[in-house]
């Protein structure tokens, strides 16, 4: 594999970085899936980690939240090296970190309110009334007021995501991780979730790391974007830098979005069914011609 192309000088190297990954290597068995990852996230920054399927972004997130241990290297969160920290220090750290998992990871046997209160029960000695008010406040923040008594099975996909966010922020974490917040959501719900991420940073000054493959979402919320490819960092740059990159792999990523955006459902359906295009529809006519050529 060619040397990693670190295209830009924008990778922050600050002493007060809230995330600092150094020399991270990870393997699944004999197969290396992350190679020499170096990354920092500044306080109050929204860092989006992007990449195609198999790029290693989900594996990187698992290392960031401590679900996997690296083969080599270190992962420092809020000044604590989670690859070496003793249990007590990790317990203190977990009070300051929130994770919104892709599928929500809500407990199906608990209603929404109890799910959101779970971190408070686990990490604090607060009385129940305070915990309930804190949980209800966060339901207000994520626009899920009134859903307290619902069970996870009664929630829509968007509601599950928002409940997961409410649980992730219930302890006012300094650092928040999102795993594919837009996955499986319609565009309007996805956009609302992006707005929520921006609001959380604004109001609560959180540092936020988002793993996603959704370019629209990444461009909307990111201060900087890390692009992963085959387990290596391809580039770290701001949105403008990513857009103007002449790196072929990044262009492929951008063009995939363009291809998706240009899909015309009716034309596509006609192409699949072989139905004739309406008279005067050059795009559809062209499609037919293309199909004929094949």
């Amino acid at each position: 594999m060619a040397a990693v192309a670190q295209e830009t000088p924008t990778q922050t190297r600050t002493d007060d970085a809230v995330v600092r990954i150094q020399g991270l290597q990870a393997h699944y068995g004999a197969r290396q899936v992350l190679h020499d990852i170096e990354l920092t996230v500044a306080p109050g920054e929204i860092m989006v980690i992007m990449g195609g399927s198999g790029s290693g972004k989900s594996t990187l997130l698992r290392h960031l939240v401590g679900l996997m241990r690296p083969t080599a290297g270190s992962v420092e969160l809020l000044g604590v090296d989670i690859t070496r920290a003793p249990a007590l220090e990790m317990q203190r750290l977990r009070r300051r970190i929130g994770v919104a998992f892709q599928g929500g990871a809500l407990f199906s046997s608990m209603n929404v309110l109890d799910n959101i209160m779970l971190p408070l029960r686990e990490h604090t000695q607060l009385d129940r009334q305070t915990m309930e008010i804190m949980a209800r406040l966060k339901l207000e923040v994520v626009n899920l007021a009134g859903a307290e008594d619902l069970m996870p099975a009664e929630l829509s996909g968007g509601m599950v995501k928002r409940a997961a966010v409410a649980r992730a922020i219930v302890m006012d974490p300094a650092l928040l991780f999102f795993d594919e917040p837009s996955a499986g959501l319609d565009p309007a719900v996805s956009s609302a979730l992006d707005d929520l991420i921006l609001k959380l940073r604004e109001a609560m000054n959180m540092s936020i790391v988002v793993v996603t493959h959704e370019l629209e979402s990444a461009f909307k919320i990111a201060d900087r974007i890390t692009v992963l490819d085959q387990g290596r960092i391809l580039t770290v740059d701001d949105v403008a830098g990513i857009r103007r990159s002449d790196n072929a792999r990044i262009q492929n990523l951008l063009n995939r979005r363009a291809e998706n955006a240009e899909v015309d459902a009716e034309t596509y359906l006609r192409r699949l069914t072989g139905e004739a295009a309406p008279a005067g529809d050059p795009q559809a006519a062209g499609t037919k011609q293309d199909a004929g050529a094949v």
């Binding site: 009334q129 305070t130 008010i133 804190m134 406040l137 006012d172």
Partner: peptide
């Protein structure tokens, strides 16, 4: 002041 402090004010 964090959410626990704000919750105390609400109560």
């Amino acid at each position: 002041i964090d959410s626990s402090g704000i919750a105390s004010l609400v109560e």
